Amino acid sequence: MATIRQFQVTFDCAEPERLARFWCEVLGYEVAKPPYGFATWDAFDATRPAEERGSWFACADPTGAGPRLFFQRVPEGKTAKNRVHLDVRVGTGLHGEERLAALEAECARLLPLGAVRERLLLDENDSCIVMRDIEDNEFCLD
């Protein structure tokens, strides 16, 4: 039998803390504990060379069930479609108009946070809304 392993999802980005806080709001996550030995992320950053400050940040599911999300600053911007994206499961078990209503309500909640609605993929049972986060990464409301 295979061993089940924990994993984290890592985002390359321009502004790690800003993007992490966006995803905290989307998923109901909280800021993750700072690296070992530090009381806060600011304390950790204070030990880094000036050019590396603010280069890393993380958020975590407060229940421990979901994966940790890690954000790392990279010098280049996003240039192509994501090869991996998150599906935010807000319509699980719902179908038809009830599912669409749940997706639209979540979309309306995320727009003021800076998310962008790209398009609705309409299917009679399994519709989803393709969105973009504040750094243009695609994700779906599913």
Rank of each mutant, 00 (worst) to 15 (best):
A58Q: 01
C59R: 01
A60L: 06
D61E: 03
P62G: 11
P62N: 10
T63K: 08
T63Q: 12
G64W: 09
A65G: 10
A65F: 11
A65E: 14
G66K: 02
G66W: 08
R68K: 15
R68Y: 03
L69V: 02
L69R: 00
L69M: 08
F71L: 05
F71G: 02
F71C: 03
R73H: 09
R73G: 04
R73D: 04
V74N: 05
V74Y: 08
V74R: 13
V74E: 12
P75C: 03
P75W: 06
P75Q: 07
P75D: 10
E76D: 09
E76S: 12
E76W: 09
K78D: 02
K78H: 04
K78G: 01
K78Q: 11
T79G: 15
T79L: 15
T79H: 14
T79E: 14
A80I: 05
A80W: 03
A80P: 04
A80L: 13
A80D: 13
K81H: 11
N82T: 02
N82S: 10
N82K: 07
R83T: 14
R83D: 12
V84T: 12
V84R: 10
V84S: 12
V84P: 00
V84F: 15
H85T: 02
H85L: 10
L86H: 05
L86Q: 08
D87V: 01
D87P: 03
V88I: 14
V88S: 06
R89N: 14
R89P: 02
V90Y: 00
V90A: 00
V90C: 07
G91W: 03
G91Q: 06
T92S: 15
T92M: 14
T92V: 13
G93F: 08
G93Y: 01
L94W: 05
L94F: 11
H95E: 15
H95S: 14
G96D: 09
G96Q: 08
G96W: 04
G96M: 08
G96A: 10
E97S: 11
E97N: 11
E97W: 05
E97M: 08
E98Q: 12
E98C: 05
E98F: 02
E98T: 12
L100H: 11
L100T: 04
A101H: 09
A101W: 06
A101M: 05
A101L: 11
A102D: 02
A102R: 09
A102W: 05
L103P: 04
L103W: 08
E104T: 11
E104K: 12
E104V: 03
E104Y: 07
A105Q: 11
A105Y: 09
E106K: 15
E106M: 11
C107P: 02
C107R: 14
A108P: 00
A108T: 08
L111N: 00
P112F: 00
P112A: 03
L113N: 00
G114V: 00
G114C: 01
G114A: 03
G114T: 00
